[in-house]
Design a protein around this nucleic acid. Structure first.
Lengths: 108, 108
DNA sequence: TATACGTGCAATTATCTGGTTGCGCAAATT
DNA sequence: AATTTGCGCAACCAGATAATTGCACGTATA
């Protein structure tokens, strides 16, 4: 199997984003997660599977329970992708800043 | 119509991410965009429509051509969503830093 | 005016997606 | 030993998605 998953596809679903946010705070079992949503445990398990496939989530078995936790450094990939745009919006912000400064100067 | 679109869904598709990256550099027409991909112009137009629906893209008509450009400040929404995780990964980094410092101290 | 060009939109289709239900299995509880 | 609990997996289904083709319309060009 081992389907190549994409982190951008992983965060596209609102339920998965909520799961990610919960797991960022503490490791949880599928049952505990499912209590936060209006869906079945199996549906949550499917989401977890997708998150696991793109290495966003890690599991640790404890007896018959499985605790899932977020691999937070994986989230940096999104941050890294944003870099190309961050450069631009910061430039635009600086330009706006200069315009405002010029206007202020003219007022004097 | 006016379907409420989600920026996270918008960036889920790799072609759309490529379109966003291109439009970040300069405004382009659908035809010009389509030349960069293995799909039809109509397919690109559909992607543009989705990007427009979530206000990621703006259009300016020039004669019979339409130039689309990226509304880059919209990308900050993703950055803002990442904030909650950024706090955590920075904390973890600091903790790692402390561990390393402690190890270094012990070596002395 | 006739023709070519740039574009959006509708209809169609194959595939993906997210959800459900019903298992089976191993671990805990009785 | 029998039952309950937690879990993953497979089958199934309705709706979304991405792509194609065909078309209509306005703008440029001959």
């Amino acid at each position: 199997m081992e389907i190549r998953r994409d982190i951008f596809q992983a965060i596209a679903d609102p339920t998965r984003r909520a799961i990610i946010a919960l797991l960022a705070l503490q490791a949880m079992t599928p049952n505990a997660l499912a209590e936060h949503f209006n869906t079945s445990r199996q549906a949550v398990s499917k989401h977890i599977k997708i998150l696991t496939e793109c290495e966003l989530v890690e599991q640790e078995q404890q007896g018959r329970e499985i605790y899932y936790s977020l691999q937070i450094q994986k989230m940096k990939e999104i941050d890294k992708w944003l870099d190309q745009f961050r450069k631009i919006w910061e430039t635009q912000f600086n330009q706006l800043d200069q315009v405002l400064a010029t206007l202020k100067k003219q007022k004097k």
